[in-house]
Write a protein that binds this DNA or RNA. Structure first.
Lengths: 406, 406
DNA sequence: TATGTTCGTAAGCTTTACTAACAAACATGA
DNA sequence: TCATGTTTGTTAGTAAAGCTTACGAACATA
């Protein structure tokens, strides 16, 4: 059975459309600017899709449950759950595991679970400076194979070709049907997976999602790398529903999760904080022309440059540099944390630089500059997902879009 | 027909529950922190409520339409629209206006409209310093009667009594059934209308919504004043779906609308930016103990105090004071505007102080400190709704909660 | 006057999830 | 040992929702 057969089994033809009506990442939220038609009509079959996702999500998160268990947990009846489960088994998404061992009165339950080996997801991370990396992930987000291509200075269509080659490698490695391809790209990406602007790659209005969908005939989701990262942190790293992830690398970007939903912004540029000016006391000149942009304080190349200066050779000097960077981050984040009432801020990037004086200074500055009574419980921590955070976020986007699960 | 009969006609008993399943303000979004049951099951009747709201919304916004017009606009069939409209007419929400005058082939259409005089809304604004004000509003948000009570230093339960007295006055003034009571309160308000913290009124965990609902037996929505204001600006003032409203008065607060949905924050304290520290160069000591809080620069009492100093008597000096306040606001907002990719910032407060050098300096500072290429099209303007913005926002909350309309 | 168009409604169908009822399979206690 | 109670999953029938098809009414136009 192939992935496309799964789609056919629901008599669907559009490969990029979600299998269910779960709140898909790329398809769920319309790019509403000033909606004329406030919301769409709802048909009974939409409710069906929602409940299907609900069952799937229950199994995804808690696994090894009987139909009766699911019924109790979701509030649906056993009859309805049976019907939905039959659908899901027919689609190859759910399998019966046999009877429950546990000894208790009544007919023994037949345990179910997501067939976590039935599908794989292709995840791509385009956010590193010199390398495009990719992986095959299972439905739990575990990585079973890796691949990468060197960018070697490619931009524009050449860079697209590298993406296609990388995806091709991974598709060929797959030993199970592919549920979809998720891509975390730098820059500004709209809801249709068009990279509106990624200066380092020379992309302006590059329709990456369509290009990949046309090439592979699979569902594809393309989104900003930091947005992917915050989704990964939410699904796999235990992040709260109101959280912000700061991705510090060659540049500085952020992903925002508000009420469990990623924020895109009015021009899809939410989280682009690298060129916000920090403080009222000057700072270094930035590539963008302004003075004191967050990136001049915090990007890894800038940090390393300052750390390698002769006058910063000592441990105390090194700490001072990191502390100052952390303070600047705190100054920039304080208004955001205050205005959004965030519960959690997560840092992603090189641990050896971020997880120490820098993070400590950031959280201290945040506490000093916001209302302690409300934000005293603010958490700041490093990501627990390491370097694979974007890859795993890309998988979450596919899971969310195709199964309504996350 | 009374308002409570409307509810009974749908065989509903809970007066605080919405008539429809529209995305209600107070009831729509669960206070999700880490949801165990991801989302609720969906029954066919929920779809019905949604479509009912859809029809209502179409009539609310565009008015004077036939059943066939609505069908074309919503995508529902004429048959379904007829059934929904029959429901709405039975509930007294919609009336037939007679046949369309316009001469064209075919059977003449019967025009429908919301019965905009059938209900009134009680709106209360508790955000002023010395006065609670209230109004009766029709479904279009127009004010037909006003009332107010002097606070006279009341706090705690005394202040609640003043709210009840004000509401009582307005309820007695009503000449049509009351759709509900909307309240804009200062401080932190949770989704159940409990005022968690409003220092000036001495409220801590005050269940204002329940108190009002118990007293009047009507649907009640209580929310933060700035949140109410941004909703008013969205519904009546033409604000975009990603916008922020800064309410400057005795304190400084903000309301955020992201993707058309108000933001509440992880502890319901979203928008509480008055005590965020601005800049890196000190500033006046604030009542909260910190230095350089936004309120020390921008609150009206602080502004007036500085303007009335002898050394600021000249026009140029006055402008300098206002300009500095505007710059400080811009410094605080820049990271927020950048991170959220806001399209629009709206100021609410005394026009004579805000709408001039202050607003000009704010927008200039914002442009200087964010990425021009993305935020060059950022708009900053005064509210068009004047002093009644919170009252009208309170009405929007009731409309949204009871009819799924806004 | 005949024709075509549009509106609103009636009748019947499909889909959905519900309730009620039941057989199967187990534990438990008399 | 056997009757009883419990739990599971399924079958059958019902209610609600929106759909398609069809039709009469009311109009404009050739």
């Amino acid at each position: 059975m192939t992935a496309s057969e799964v789609q056919r089994s629901s008599s669907r033809t559009d490969p990029s459309a979600p299998l269910t009506t779960g709140q898909g990442f790329a398809h769920g939220k319309a790019p509403q600017t000033r909606v004329l038609r406030p919301s769409a009509k709802v048909l009974p079959e939409h409710a069906r899709g929602h409940n299907r996702s609900l069952v799937l999500q229950t199994l995804y998160r808690d696994g090894r449950r009987s139909r009766a268990d699911i019924a109790r947990q979701t509030g649906l009846t056993r009859v309805t759950v049976s019907a939905l489960v039959a659908d899901l088994i027919a689609d190859g998404l759910v399998v019966e595991l046999g009877q429950r061992e546990e000894t208790r009165p009544g007919k023994p339950a037949t345990l179910l679970d997501l067939d976590r080996a039935a599908f794989v997801i292709v995840g791509l991370d385009l956010s590193e400076h010199a390398t495009f990396s990719g992986a095959l992930l299972d439905l739990d987000g575990a990585i079973s194979a890796r691949a990468e291509v060197q960018l070697a200075g490619s931009t524009g269509d050449d860079a697209v070709q590298k993406v296609l080659a990388l995806a091709q490698q991974l598709v060929e490695l797959a030993t199970a049907p592919i549920l979809g391809i998720g891509v975390g790209s730098p820059g500004v990406v709209d809801l249709g997976g068009v990279v509106l602007s990624a200066p380092n790659l020379g992309w302006n209005g590059m329709p990456l999602q369509s290009i990949l969908a046309d090439r592979f005939g699979l569902p594809v989701v393309v989104a900003n790398d930091a947005n992917a990262a915050i989704l990964a942190e939410h699904s796999f790293g235990g992040a709260e529903s109101d959280a912000m992830l700061i991705k510090i690398g060659h540049g500085v970007g952020a992903g925002l999760l508000l009420g469990g939903t990623p924020l895109f912004g009015s021009r899809f540029a939410a989280g682009e904080i690298g060129h916000v000016v920090v403080g009222t006391d000057g700072g270094a000149v930035c590539a963008c022309g302004k003075r004191g942009c967050l990136e001049t304080w915090l990007s890894i190349p800038n940090l390393i440059e300052r750390l390698e200066r002769p006058e910063n050779a000592g441990d105390a000097d090194r700490d001072a540099v990191l502390r100052e960077a952390g303070q600047r981050l705190g100054i920039a984040l304080a208004p955001v944390v205050g205005a959004l009432d965030l519960g959690e801020v997560i840092l992603s990037g090189p641990t050896e630089l971020l997880d120490g004086p820098l993070a400590k200074a950031t959280v201290e500055t945040l506490r000093q500059r916001t209302m302690a009574e409300f934000h005293g419980s603010l958490t700041l921590r490093m990501t627990t997902l390491g370097q694979d955070i974007v890859l795993r976020g890309a998988a979450v986007m596919v899971l969310s879009g195709q199964l309504g699960v996350s």
